[in-house]
Design a protein around this nucleic acid. Structure first.
Lengths: 436, 436
DNA sequence: ACAGTTTCCCGTAAATGC
DNA sequence: TGCATTTACGGGAAACTG
């Protein structure tokens, strides 16, 4: 009987994915006033127990910390929702509401709200053949937020806690004195984030760039403050995760985004490549997720590497990155536009990598309702300075480039002369060649 | 004493702008769950009355219609807000909540919710030297909505009711059988809307276009159903008002937007003008406010009028219409881009009309953080067909155009030859002339 | 099945609190 | 005063409801 009692006492469980807030893919984050659902099951699923149990959720039940650490916020379930749940139909919709009036600790001593860990317990009373048991089940620690701007920070806490929680240790004051992680641990979790979001993990090079940003400790430890606060490392990374989720899943999955690479390294890589080679990297200055392309131009003899002003989520809303790449152009002399992006590093032709993501403008060409269709094409004035004049001979100048330019110009003249003659009806037989 | 009593009985008033919902510039529209404020004053402002009166708001008090017309929705003030207001500090924050369970009328017989008119009365009991009076004041009819998508329709009701209400008639069932308006009445109100939103009324031509859309009755009457339903005339106009409010106030105020003009008339006007003349008109097909520019191109001999695929609010969010105009280009032969927009109809040079609204890209040219700045430039492939070949002699073809083209091409060749020679260091003295 | 309506909720802006 | 946190609510979309 004792064993049976024991078993029963543990029979109530909150299921694996205990609380799924509506924040996609970010369980254990609860926003006040927003409904979330819980799945509670009674493992002793004997038919005679059916419909016998009513389960009641209690916020921070028996949590010592809440009494000790007086500045913890208090929450309760919105009125009509704290009614009991039926174990047999174990989905309940709950939502939280803060109970104002927490004790005020000095700002220094208090944790950020996204570092406060709480739990929800589900309790029920089991009565059967003279047996009376109070049994309960608890969720994993959750973070309660009040605005979506807090999601990133909250998720950092959830991840950190997850990496540190070994079995049954459940320290809701973890962030009062948060233990450091090894880079080994953290890097795996970060990589996992990219796998979840973009279907591809981080590679060695990318991890190494992140490592340099986050770890400045000889023994390979990462400190919570460094990760979550000082340099906002996580906020920056999470902005990029969101950018990928919203606009770059395909490109990321295909591995076409180098992404995490310093500007210096970008220049090093590209300088060895032919004109028109480009790569994609995430902006390090914009903290909300932005991506830029960098390309190399050798037309001045010496290689020049340029980077476009990064595209933000907003800008990718209407036009996709492949389309931006496909239509980008440099304005040269006499409004002649040239797209400087030809090969994705190291040498994949642009069309091979992105071709099937380009918006097919063919159907749009018809012009709905008789309107002239437009294409969005960003352009810049050519940032590569023209070659130096000869009077200042430049020893390491690549003379071949100059020859190329000559040839190009000659070709243009040839074409123009043809056009001229065609326009003048001197060579009417050429007419079709330029109107088509 | 009787007169005094009479006066007191009318002394409580809801002020001129009785209810200002947060919907900007659209009083008398109340959204459930969103706070609004009311200003109630007691005209008999004697010092001994001060702070004596507590005013209580009551929704649809004594409204016969609510009892008769059983499908009217019922509302009440959110719990803790129905507590009394102090007349002396007459601002109260109220918000409404629907009381579910209205009688179900057949869908046919019911009005749309935005056609239901309600009132709020403020009541108070006045006790002074043995005198006891119940006095009250009513708002003008209001419309209660539950989502911002209903604002347009609700505002149509408010306007219509306003035009029809003569003095004290207050028919909350107005829209059960709504009387028609004369075009004279409606046009004034419409024009007034544009004055409020865009600082400029509608002119004769614009009104005439609207008249053709809304009035199809010989005796100049406008029917509610025509205005608000069948053709969605008002919804279309309100979308444009919103477009103006958000993105075009300046241009509209300056009178640079012809806006309401048929496509046919646009072509007629432009065909008489020189190449590059353009005008701005609102899209008639997009119901959420969009604007297009149309321009004329005579380069083919016969005039061609083209209209760009209209710009929506979304697209004007990041780039202003003047900037779109300024950077728009047609892609011609060999990626040479030309802006076809030169003169705002009838003959105002583009820069004169829009010049000081162009975003000054000068400071951006520096390229923040070492990034290459980009400009947004929409472009299209030139929709004007090239001139017909000579073998099919076209009698009304303007030969001058062909001559112009020749000259242009010749100039291009001349420039190119100069460039070629400069590049080849044959005429180094010309070098500076094209690098600057 | 569907259209008119309401609810839900993210994301931003404003308000609040400390 | 500034920063951390919450509240407010527009807008789009899902859910509701006859």
């Amino acid at each position: 009987l004792s064993l049976f009692t024991q078993l029963l006492a543990n029979a109530l469980v909150v299921e694996k994915q205990p609380i799924m807030s509506s924040l996609p893919q970010r369980p254990l984050i609860l926003k006040t006033g927003v409904r979330f659902s819980v799945r509670v099951r009674f493992l002793a699923n004997l038919p005679e127990f059916k419909c016998l149990l009513k389960v009641k959720p209690v916020f921070d039940k028996d949590v010592e910390e809440v009494k000790t650490v007086k500045w913890f916020r208090h929450f309760d379930f919105n009125r009509d929702e704290c009614k009991v749940l039926d174990v047999d139909s174990p989905n309940g919709d709950l939502s939280l509401k803060e109970i104002k009036g927490r004790a005020k600790g000095s700002i220094e001593s208090r944790l950020a709200v996204t570092e406060e860990l709480h739990i929800i317990k589900f309790v029920t009373q089991f009565r059967h053949v003279g047996l009376e048991l109070n049994i309960e089940a608890s969720t994993l620690p959750v973070v309660v937020i009040s605005a979506t701007t807090q999601v990133s920070s909250a998720w950092a806490s959830i991840m950190w806690n997850n990496m540190l929680s070994t079995g049954d240790s459940r320290n809701l004051q973890l962030f009062v004195d948060p233990p450091p992680l090894t880079w080994e641990q953290l890097s795996q979790v970060l990589s996992w984030q990219f796998l979840c979001t973009g279907k591809r993990e981080l590679d060695e090079n990318q991890l190494s760039v992140l490592r340099d940003k986050i770890v400045d400790d000889p023994d390979d430890l990462v400190y919570w403050s460094k990760f979550s606060k000082n340099e906002n490392a996580w906020l920056w990374i999470d902005g990029i995760l969101d950018l990928i989720k919203k606009h770059l899943v395909d490109l990321w999955r295909d591995g076409y985004i180098m992404g995490f690479i310093s500007r210096e390294r970008t220049a090093e890589l590209l300088k060895e490549k032919r004109t028109g080679t480009f790569l994609l990297r995430f902006s390090e200055s914009k903290t909300n997720g932005a991506i830029s392309f960098s390309w190399v131009d050798n037309s001045n003899g010496a290689p020049f590497v340029h980077s476009i002003d990064p595209y933000t989520k907003d800008e990718l809303e209407k036009t996709s990155l492949p389309d931006y790449i496909n239509t980008y152009s440099l304005r040269g002399r006499k409004s002649r536009h040239i797209n400087p992006l030809l090969y994705l590093y190291p040498d994949i032709p642009k069309d091979t990598a992105f071709g099937h993501y380009f918006t097919n403008t063919a159907e749009k060409m018809l012009g709905e309702h008789g309107y002239v269709p437009r294409k969005r094409g960003d352009f810049s004035d050519n940032p590569t300075p023209p070659p130096s004049p000869p009077r200042e001979p430049n020893t390491d100048m690549d003379m071949d480039m100059d020859m190329e330019m000559d040839v190009e110009t000659k070709l243009e003249i040839h074409e123009l002369i043809q056009e001229l003659f065609a326009d003048s009806f001197i060579f009417p037989e050429n007419y079709g060649s330029w109107t088509s």
